[in-house]
Simulated assay, not measured.
Amino acid sequence: MTSVGAHEHADTAQPDRQSVAQRLLDSSETLSYDPVKEVDWETPLDTSYHGASPEWSTLYGTSYWAEMTPEQQRELTRQEAASVASTGIWFEMILQQMVLRDFYAKDPTDPAFQWALTEIADECRHSIMFARGAAKLGAPAYRPRRLAVELGRFFKTTATGEAAYAAILVAEEVLDVMQRDWMRDERVVPFVRTINNIHVVEESRHMKFAREETRERLEGAGRLRRQYNALVVSIAAYFIVSSMVNEKVYANAGLDSKRAIREARSNEHHKAMLRSSCAGLMEFLDSAGLLTKAATVFYKRANLI
């Protein structure tokens, strides 16, 4: 990620920060994609494919999943993939605004400034790519619930430093693990696999910077600051993860919505998938002092621990 709510760094830290930013810029020049050209937007949707790896479905492993026809299972994964993409757009828009706010009127010759604009360009392309992908999957516009939208509006306006970076990292890490599975899965419709591959490759640079910025911002931070930001990040994580699959996907897949929601909420397989995907993230947050007792409550509610 880019610098969010940046403060004045010590002179000795600047060369390292600039070096990292320059390496990311170089990497971006070497390995970036244009979704307009790379993704097959023209071929009609082949409904013999899933939209995501079935094992990542919120109903996989439930009695309802066992009763569903293969066609219903594929349609559900397509709707769920579209919902995840829509949630990705929501958070990427939050990120873009935080980055622009941070770099307003700063030194444009600084590699970090140029990396910030590069990342905004990446996220903008990703959002358009996700939007077109969701439309091609035959899904409506899935949006987070009103409370999440309003909290996101507040977060993008106020979050700074490690709170912003760590929250960004949570969103990207969860998406990264599931999308790595989807992009390799031949059961998933080819154009979705391409979308996931593009996102995984380009977001890897963003995650690297987010981790380094989180560590740097926390240097010298006191206990109260760590406790506060740990809680803020965990609450953000809860709303991000709980917003990924909109409950309307079940009705749109032709299922009994009430039963599907009930079984999805108690689906231990899906909870285990989320916990597994976040093992590395939780280790990082713990090492950074951001996995406090209060924060753990929200991570457990989000099934990340």
Rank of each mutant, 00 (worst) to 15 (best):
N197G: 03
N197L: 03
N197Y: 13
I198E: 03
I198W: 01
V200N: 02
V200D: 00
V200H: 01
V200Q: 02
E202M: 10
E202V: 10
E202C: 11
E202Y: 04
E202G: 10
E202N: 07
E203H: 07
E203D: 14
S204G: 09
S204M: 05
R205G: 15
R205F: 09
H206Y: 05
M207L: 07
K208H: 09
K208G: 14
K208Y: 13
K208C: 12
F209D: 04
F209R: 05
A210R: 00
A210K: 03
R211V: 14
R211F: 09
R211S: 06
R211T: 04
E212T: 13
T214G: 12
T214P: 05
T214K: 05
T214A: 01
R215K: 11
R215A: 08
E216P: 01
E216M: 02
E216V: 02
R217K: 12
L218V: 11
L218H: 08
L218D: 15
E219F: 13
E219M: 09
G220W: 11
G220K: 01
A221W: 02
A221C: 12
A221V: 01
G222E: 04
G222C: 12
G222Y: 06
R223V: 07
R223A: 15
L224C: 09
L224S: 12
R225C: 06
R225I: 09
R226I: 15
R226K: 13
R226M: 11
Q227F: 13
Q227W: 14
Q227E: 12
Q227S: 12
Y228L: 04
Y228D: 13
Y228F: 08
N229A: 08
A230G: 05
L231T: 08
L231Y: 05
V232L: 09
V232Y: 02
V233R: 00
V233P: 04
V233Y: 02
S234V: 10
I235N: 07
I235H: 00
I235R: 02
I235S: 05
A236Q: 15
A237P: 12
A237T: 10
Y238Q: 03
Y238W: 14
Y238M: 02
F239K: 06
I240G: 03
I240L: 15
I240P: 06
I240T: 00
V241F: 11
V241I: 15
V241L: 10
V241H: 04
S242W: 10
S242H: 08
S242D: 02
S242Y: 12
S243G: 15
S243L: 08
M244G: 06
M244F: 11
M244C: 03
M244E: 03
V245R: 04
V245N: 02
N246R: 08
N246D: 07
N246W: 11
N246E: 14
E247H: 10
E247A: 14
E247I: 09
K248C: 03
V249S: 01
V249H: 06
Y250H: 04
Y250A: 03
Y250K: 04
Y250F: 12
A251E: 05
A251F: 09
A251V: 11
N252R: 12
N252F: 10
N252Y: 14
N252C: 14
N252Q: 15
A253F: 05
A253C: 09
A253Q: 05
A253E: 01
A253P: 02
A253G: 07
